[in-house]
Computed example of a mutant assay.
Amino acid sequence: MSLKAPVGVLRLPKGPDPNSRGFDRNSARFIALCPTSISSSSSESKEEQRVRSELRERFLRTLLVMTDKPVQFNMHEKVQVQARFGASDIDVLNFQVSNLETPLGVQKEALLRCQDVISCSFEL
């Protein structure tokens, strides 16, 4: 009986600081997700921050309205799928859907990666 070669261990970055809700402000992830400086006092950055806040609020309200409604997703490679929208994760990287109708069949529960979705639409 021969022993198999050991496999190296991949160490993941440390998670959120246990005393706060979020990642270290000096981490690469935080810097990539927050390219603008909030601490700047210029009127342009305050206006940009106000507009970003307004757009974020509209987007979150749209996600709330979409909950439990039939939604059509346009994916890459001209694939269109329909599903009942459930929720999104906090970073909006995945959508949880039910009764996903794909060209290959129906999936009772599924996660759609947002980077695979080009657009989505639903009726009010």
Score class of each variant (00 low, 15 high):
78 K>E: 12
94 N>S: 11
108 K>M: 10
34 C>R: 13
23 F>T: 10
85 F>M: 05
81 V>T: 10
44 E>Q: 09
88 S>P: 02
19 N>W: 12
71 V>H: 00
113 R>D: 11
73 F>S: 01
57 E>C: 02
65 V>Y: 00
20 S>Q: 15
74 N>L: 04
68 D>G: 00
99 N>H: 07
59 F>Q: 06
84 R>K: 11
41 S>L: 06
16 P>S: 15
62 T>L: 07
41 S>E: 11
92 V>R: 13
25 R>Q: 08
85 F>S: 03
102 T>Q: 05
25 R>W: 05
48 E>Q: 14
78 K>R: 13
111 L>I: 07
4 K>S: 10
53 S>A: 15
80 Q>D: 09
36 T>Y: 13
14 K>S: 09
48 E>M: 09
49 Q>N: 14
29 R>N: 08
92 V>D: 09
104 L>Y: 09
68 D>S: 10
33 L>F: 08
103 P>A: 04
87 A>M: 05
10 L>W: 11
10 L>V: 15
65 V>N: 00
124 L>M: 10
46 K>R: 15
28 A>R: 10
80 Q>R: 15
38 I>E: 10
19 N>K: 14
56 R>F: 13
54 E>P: 00
55 L>R: 13
80 Q>E: 15
117 V>F: 03
62 T>M: 06
40 S>E: 10
51 V>E: 14
58 R>S: 08
47 E>K: 12
23 F>S: 13
92 V>Q: 13
79 V>G: 02
70 P>Y: 00
51 V>C: 03
32 A>G: 05
6 P>Q: 01
17 D>R: 13
105 G>R: 04
18 P>E: 09
18 P>T: 06
115 Q>M: 15
119 S>L: 04
93 L>R: 14
67 T>G: 01
89 D>C: 08
47 E>C: 01
8 G>H: 03
104 L>W: 09
57 E>H: 08
20 S>D: 12
110 A>P: 06
102 T>P: 03
25 R>N: 08
85 F>A: 03
103 P>Q: 05
101 E>V: 12
71 V>Y: 00
31 I>F: 00
98 S>K: 10
95 F>Q: 03
14 K>P: 05
39 S>K: 06
105 G>Q: 04
18 P>R: 09
2 S>E: 09
9 V>A: 06
114 C>G: 08
75 M>T: 02
106 V>Q: 13
11 R>D: 09
55 L>M: 14
6 P>D: 01
96 Q>S: 14
48 E>I: 12
111 L>M: 15
75 M>P: 01
60 L>N: 11
100 L>M: 04
70 P>L: 02
83 A>G: 03
45 S>F: 01
82 Q>I: 02
37 S>N: 11
23 F>L: 14
82 Q>L: 04
79 V>P: 01
34 C>W: 13
107 Q>N: 07
56 R>C: 11
117 V>T: 05
117 V>C: 05
110 A>E: 06
39 S>Y: 07
47 E>F: 05
62 T>K: 01
55 L>E: 11
58 R>G: 02
99 N>Y: 04
16 P>M: 15
45 S>L: 07
